[in-house]
Structure formats: structure tokens, C-alpha cells
Design a protein around this nucleic acid. Sequence first.
DNA 1: CACCAATATAGTGTTTCCACTATATATGTC
DNA 2: GACATATATAGTGGAAACACTATATTGGTG
Lengths: 116, 116
Amino acid sequence: MNEVKHISFFEVASKVLKALGHPERLRIVEYLQAGERNVGNIQQKIGLSQPITSQHLRYMQRNNILTSRREGTRLYYFLASDLIRKLLDCMHSCKVSLDSGDMQIGDIFPETKRSI
Amino acid sequence: MNEVKHISFFEVASKVLKALGHPERLRIVEYLQAGERNVGNIQQKIGLSQPITSQHLRYMQRNNILTSRREGTRLYYFLASDLIRKLLDCMHSCKVSLDSGDMQIGDIFPETKRSI
DNA sequence: CACCAATATAGTGTTTCCACTATATATGTC
DNA sequence: GACATATATAGTGGAAACACTATATTGGTG
């Protein structure tokens, strides 16, 4: 009975990507790149309601994007792994290339007709 | 009337991540890392039905993950940008660290109780 | 224990995703 | 134009995501 259910790398990895695939959640993790923050901090920074903020944070924790640490009545969330940091670096360097004019929108997002 | 609607980077970027966030789609893009392939190739390689394959491919094209090129009656799909390639590299190097035993599952996917 | 502040969960309606079957379109060949 | 092959789209039912309101839980303090 010590059997352990197997799950493919693709399953877990795709859950991570899917969970990152929401604009507000992307904003949250970007904010957390600087270090851990509690729910109140995040809520205020991103400008979401308290329940929505909590929901997003829980969802990301369930999907291996965040981890949390309690301190009294406050809950601090932070990035769960190096994988997340690397993924964020990808996105960030992409944004930098766009902002600097080094790359055109169409080079990265061919279907995007609107400017960024 | 030459106004262009604006869309935030977070919006587009999160769509990309979300569209990558499906195990079969992740398998497809990994397969396409080697180069362009037509729908039939992909369908056979991944083992999906024809309509499902087509749906996933279209969905990824709409979301800036793939581009396509027609050759006669065949449609060849390929990775749309360097961003996608970089994201795939992230995932791949993560998988390598796991397979080599260099990293533990819990280091990357804390919530995953099952082995990979 | 009463109370407060911080956070989580339940319940609900709407939208999107997903897999599936059936049908349509596009291109090439005779 | 008739036909075959490759691919896309429509329609459908069920599952999950999403945003929102209301309520519950947890921990600290008097």
C-alpha cells in the first residue's frame, strides 16, 4: 500500500502555466518577485477585492506557484520555486524588448492587432 | 479613426500562458520544437482525434503560440516566437533537473504529493 | 469570553473550456 | 465537374473558471 500514484510532468507543468495565465494573477506574481507580501499588501497593490485576492492566492498555491507563511493573523505569500522565477524572467525580458523598441509586437504576438 | 485600442502586456502574456496550460497542448509545442509539422503529423504523434487536434492548434494560433503555413492541402504549424521557445526551454531544463535527480519534486512542485 | 482585524470559504450566476460527433470547406487529381 | 484527402467548423453537454455577495474561521488582545 506504499504505492504512489504517478502523474506526468506535462500534467503538473501545464497546471502551473494555466494558473499563471490570468492577468491579475500575473500582476500578483510579478509583485511578489520583490519578496513575500501578505494578503492585505497584495490586495491594495493590485486593487482587487479581498475575496478575489484570497481566491487567486489560494488557487496559485494549489497549483505550485506560491507558498505561504503565517505570522500572527497575517499570511505572507511568496514564489514557490525557481521555475516560477525563471518563467517570470522570460516574460519580463520579453516586455523589456518590446518597451525598448528592440522588438515589434508582431514578432512576439502575431495575432495581436492592437498596440500594447 | 486611426486610433488603436490598447491592451496591456499582462493581458496578452497571460493568454499565452493560459493557452500553454493544457497537457496535450504542451506535448504538441514540445513536439514542434524540432520544427514545423502538419496536422496529420501532430495528430499521429500525440494520439488525438482529428477535430481535437485541429481545435488545439487553432486555439494556440489565436493565442500567439503557433503560426501556420499552407502547402497544398497540408497545413504546417510552427512555434510563433522566441518567447515560446524560451518558455519551453524553462520547462525543459526544469524537467532535466528533476530527471537527473538534481532537484526534488517538492522543490519545484510543493503541492504535488504524487511522484512524476 | 467578547471583540476586532485578517483571511478563507460557501453559494450563485455567467462565461469559457473541453471532448465529442457530425458536417463543411479547401485543395489537388482525374 | 466528380471525387479523394486534409483540415476546419458547428453543435452539444458537461466541467471548470470567474466575479461577486455573504458568511465563516483564525489569531490576537482586552
